[in-house]
Design a protein around this nucleic acid. Structure first.
Lengths: 335, 335
DNA sequence: AAAATTTACGCAAGCGCTTGCAAAAATAAA
DNA sequence: TTTATTTTTGCAAGCGCTTGCGTAAATTTT
């Protein structure tokens, strides 16, 4: 059995309350007694029981990280959140909802359970408004990362996907390319539709008219990317370049392009999205719109903890800028 | 303020203890009262405070997942652990030690803090024996994944890396190749040295003698892989094939090989390790020794929970078999 | 030296839940 | 009907910690 406050108190010959105050650096303890107590604490390596403490002061120092589908992209965000949170004395629960609403709901109950002090919701199409709203009404503290809950006043931090789409498309346009196709994931996904919007905006800014057939919506999988190219091939109307909104899609697309005997970037230029190291491993290395994932995570954690410290959520909305990282897939080698 | 047991008790006109028993399906509550109570519970969506419950019954239903360096390989294991644990009513804390002993120690204190019921330690060179031993002595429940703490009686689950090395090397030998180099990460890493052992065994079984210069120890990074090839190039003594023990290493090695104008697999056959989807994305697709990560995670979670349920740790050691997945990098195209 | 402050410390209640034990109620046995 | 038995329920202590409040001791002020 681990030692308790009572044990320490007995050893030090003082009351429990005194030990408590000494440990927590609260006023009301004489210098001498404090030292004596801390000495004993150290000697026996006493660790306060956090459950009891949490119960008494009503905080758990735990955060729930709710992820729609734990993927290789998310772990960087998570890592970053965890690092910051840990610095501030918080631990992080990992909650994979598998894109399952019931699971999401169950996890959000951690808030009302009082198992966690707050929840950070990361990603995708999910983020069901009803569920979140319910949690919100119960005073559940939440932060949204890369997803939106319109109307609801929740601190949100996201990467400007429209800007990303714009950057990617502009880059291709600047290479003198005009026939640019976009290969996206589900249009239900807010971020995906933003990327499309950026793409359209860039075209418009260059006075190019929209070609419906160059907008290819897929399921976001590798096969989806592969099929997208086949589809164009059948139509017999190939573009000069591709903006692909997900790295996995790009992999599939590139498979198909190579299978067709085409060269990148000679026959097709490509810009991808998301700087997983896939992009640098692929041959040729992929030009991508890179998101500042580490920063994303840090902000998320910071907002959460600010929230816990009573800061007003009103002002907490952050839009980070993606940057274009030029690789070999979009630029013709000179010479 | 959330409702408490007392609130429910008052509403139902019974004592708190009765409500408690009703909620937890314990005997000693009349059928009628039970129904009445549960009705109220549902109506108000009452959620027991887990901290209080934990304090009373001395369990947190939380597991710490201690990872040496949260990487893309680990998240699959984590995902799998989390899924199983969640099924069994446990939540998982994510603890990234960043390969830092102090952090590892701090995280293991979660055990003595009684913030978690058990810890699953995943990975690498770390797993400091002293620290673990201390935790063990305090009755900390632990499970090891893909790492070892010799002498200590701790449930362990790992993939047979020696077998992996053997499989990889044998495969190359079966292709009629004889001059096979191995590129490994740090030899301090138990798993890495096992892979080497498997490699050596395979050579021995084929009556090939060991060529020291074909054993290349690196820092495990992409650059490490790149440099390994350069080193051989300088020596002017190139092998016919490579067994590369980490996927990132393989990426670097392949970079270098291509840079040198060589072809894979025509000039060099390659077998990598770990079926991240890197292996299929790389061109040519990589032949790899694949580890059953999902299964690894599931076993880890299962052992942990078995342990919590009082099962004897003695019998808990599981060695999973890796399998060879043949890609294009090791087999000459016929025709 | 006495009075007024300040500081150090202990007491005890409370956080929300569980559980052993005893009392009360319902049921079975005599 | 009485007694014995079982079931239902409540009481109260306890899990390990925090904190408001009151008192004793130390310090400062007159």
């Amino acid at each position: 059995m681990p030692l308790t406050l009572k044990d320490i108190a007995r050893m030090a010959g003082v009351a429990e309350s005194t030990v408590s105050r000494a440990i927590n650096n609260k006023p009301g303890v004489g210098e001498e007694t404090r030292k004596r107590i801390l000495e004993i604490v150290r000697k026996y390596n006493y660790q306060p029981n956090q459950l009891a403490r949490g119960l008494a002061i009503k905080e758990t120092r735990m955060l729930a990280l709710i992820v729609a589908d734990l993927s290789s992209a998310d772990y960087k965000i998570i890592k970053s959140i965890e690092a910051y949170a840990n610095e501030q004395g918080y631990n992080c629960l990992i909650c994979n909802t598998d894109n399952n609403l019931e699971k999401e709901e169950a996890y959000l109950q951690l808030l009302s359970n009082q198992r966690v002090d707050g929840a950070i919701i990361i990603g995708g199409e999910l983020a069901n408004k009803n569920i979140i709203n319910t949690a919100l009404n119960k005073n559940g503290l939440m932060v949204l990362v890369n997803c939106l809950a319109e109307e609801l006043l929740i601190p949100t931090i996201l990467v400007d996907s429209a800007r990303g789409g714009y950057l990617a498309t502009s880059h291709l346009l600047q290479q003198g390319l005009k026939k640019i196709a976009i290969v996206t994931g589900s249009s239900k996904d807010f971020l995906e539709s933003e990327k499309l919007a950026g793409y359209l905006q860039a075209l418009a800014d260059h006075n190019l008219e929209l070609e419906e057939r160059y907008i290819l919506e897929t399921d976001g999988s590798r096969e989806g990317g592969y099929d997208a190219f086949l589809q164009l091939l059948e139509q017999g109307d190939l573009p000069e370049a591709f903006f692909v909104t997900r790295d996995i899609l790009a992999v599939g697309l590139i498979d198909a392009i190579k299978m067709g005997g085409y060269l990148i970037p000679e026959d097709f230029s490509i810009v991808g999205y998301g700087e997983s190291f896939i992009s640098s491993i692929i041959n040729p290395s992929l030009t991508v719109v890179a998101e500042p994932l580490e920063e994303l995570g840090r902000y998320a954690a910071k907002y959460m903890i600010d929230l816990l410290n009573g800061r007003d959520p009103e002002e907490m909305i952050k839009v980070l800028e993606p940057v274009l990282k030029v690789g070999e897939s979009s630029v013709l080698r000179t010479g």
